[in-house]
Design a protein around this nucleic acid. Structure first.
Lengths: 198, 198, 198, 198
DNA sequence: TATGAATGAGCCTTCATTCAT
DNA sequence: CATGAATGAAGGCTCATTCAT
């Protein structure tokens, strides 16, 4: 079943696709994924209904693309960090700062990502997104454990510490407003004050 | 031979309605609210389609009922606690224990509540649910502030401390499994170790 | 994925379903399967759009049902005939009469069946329909061969005789009009005069 | 720098157009007319979507062109035959041979022609195609009648004989395979053995 | 000539809701 | 009280066709 009109690749196509992903994240974050029809989305994006389907084979694939656009850069930066030579506590600090900044920068993506947790957990085509999330959690676990072994984390069950961090950092997307009182760095350091030792 | 109209009130009716709410929360948590049609829900609940409508005027009202069933008991217990004479740090400890236990006990309700954040934030008929959530947050803020004033909380911006707590505690619903390694009390105390002063 | 509202069985349901199949065959024969939208079909059948989907999971399943309703009774009667004790030439005569009468009686079904040959040949869910057609052809082949062995058929390659018969009888649906000049029996006997020996 | 407008006429254009018709017949015969989108067709033909529209104003006109490419040469040869001086039985023999060979040679065209019978019968722009079919049937009727008057056909109602012939010959497209056991001439002669007098 | 991105109307299908039984 | 068939509006998606390049 070949797709019609072969190309659908190339730099221009990739760029436009990425733009649509970003704009769609904004619309879905505001109006909800299920509550936004494809024609509505098209109108919000200044495109005709069918144009969406030049870039995404289905509405759900667009949703997956939003999650990918969220996870990929975070994951690659985080993995670069974690494989570096710094002490684990420093890595954890850098990681949380990076992560908070990413959540704030991609607030729309995060809101969509969290809202569609159900699709991610149970959907068939979401394997890769699930895998990305899992990799990030494993990576975080590793850094927290090593920092704990160096005696640098709060005296709390390390697994609990990890999920607490996940909860507080990801929740940032829900309350943060642009030009808020606290900078991303201040927020990250506040979280770190909670989870690092005295 | 028309019988007198259905009650739509009374103790038995209330009890059945509450049961349906609980069971519906389970189904929605597993399959998603939008992804579960009313006939599907009926089948999962062992009732016919129309039976749902004897207890709820619409699918959305059922969703609101799930949120009410989650928030009301938590809120009333929390307000009783917060209006007591105990020191704020003790109140905070009791509140977080109560809250964690509630989240774990109503895990399905929580998952639905979080997943439908969009409806809650933007929907017209959700005023009361929004108000409940707001009241709980204000109450938590008050206790944290007072505990902070007593020097009992971690040295972190108090507003940040509140949202961090909201994040970590509510996130519990996402990872906790029945018969998990840690008891609700242990989990709550772990969180408290993070937010209370060394 | 359980279908909503369990029953969808029972004598009444079966009867209504069969009625819809017959009426749909009429509409599709007149207007074309692809050219008839489901709302149009519903209107022609005096039902709302959605009502179709109480009886058929998809438009294509309705098409399959039309083919089943055509093939099943023909096949069972034909098999009863072919397994009887009569001489093959008599069986062939009875079979062609039965077959022509069936084609004329189910003219609409036949027209749809022939028009959608493509779906039948290449579609994934058409295995059973293909099998029915194949069984009928095999059965016809057997009877023709036996009649040929008895020296009762025209002196023509037996395989060619079979496909010629298939062509002429099935083509009847395309030109026959109700209350036509020739009765089904006369038509069948005309065909038989061609294929039976002098 | 506008070049002069595309020819849309001329020998080269005609040749390419005819090639496209033949190739499109192959694709439509295999995949179905309605089931083949214009972009899909373009890909199967090694052309871009828009290229199709250089040669055909619409998809339907392409379909009509397929039918024309099928009917025109058959009809002109058949009419030449029928207007000759030979005895009707000889004309019938020559006609059936010509016809069978044509059906086999244009198997794809035939399959499309038959599958789209509905468009032909009811479509507005199909007058010419309908007229061609009618002319061929009239011509066949005439030859059969004259052969019958000469006592050379089987003792069967002549109109029935005509539709039987139409059925068996046209049906050839459905079962014939290239390099089959029987040659077109053998097939035609088999059919003739059935319809000509012992 | 040729391309292929874009359009938007229309299709199949789903589903919340109603109501006769 | 309960049922489940029926409704019809709306959603996701396809596709013939157009047109700027």
């Amino acid at each position: 079943m070949p797709r019609p009109d072969s190309p659908r690749t190339g730099a221009r196509w990739d760029r436009r696709r990425a733009e649509l992903v970003t704009e769609a994240a904004r619309v879905f974050a505001r109006n909800g994924y299920d509550q936004t029809s494809v024609p509505e989305l098209g109108e919000a994006l200044g495109r005709a209904t069918g144009a969406i389907y030049h870039y995404f084979p289905s509405k759900e694939e667009l949703l997956i693309a939003i999650c990918d656009q969220l996870m990929e850069p975070l994951l690659s930066e985080a993995e670069a960090l974690a494989s570096g030579p710094d002490p684990a506590a420093d890595q954890l600090r850098a990681l949380v700062r990076l992560w908070v900044a990413h959540v704030i920068e991609h607030r729309d993506h995060m809101l969509v990502f969290q809202q569609e947790r159900h699709a991610i957990d149970h959907g068939a085509q979401w394997r890769e997104v699930r895998a990305s999330r899992k990799r990030f959690e494993r990576l975080l676990e590793g850094v927290v454990e090593r920092a704990g072994a160096e005696g640098r984390t709060a005296a709390v069950d390390p697994r609990l510490l990890v999920v607490a961090l996940l909860g507080m950092v990801n929740h940032t997307a829900q309350w943060h407003r642009p030009r808020g009182r606290l900078s991303p760095k201040q927020i990250a350091d506040g979280y770190l004050d909670l989870v690092l030792a005295g």
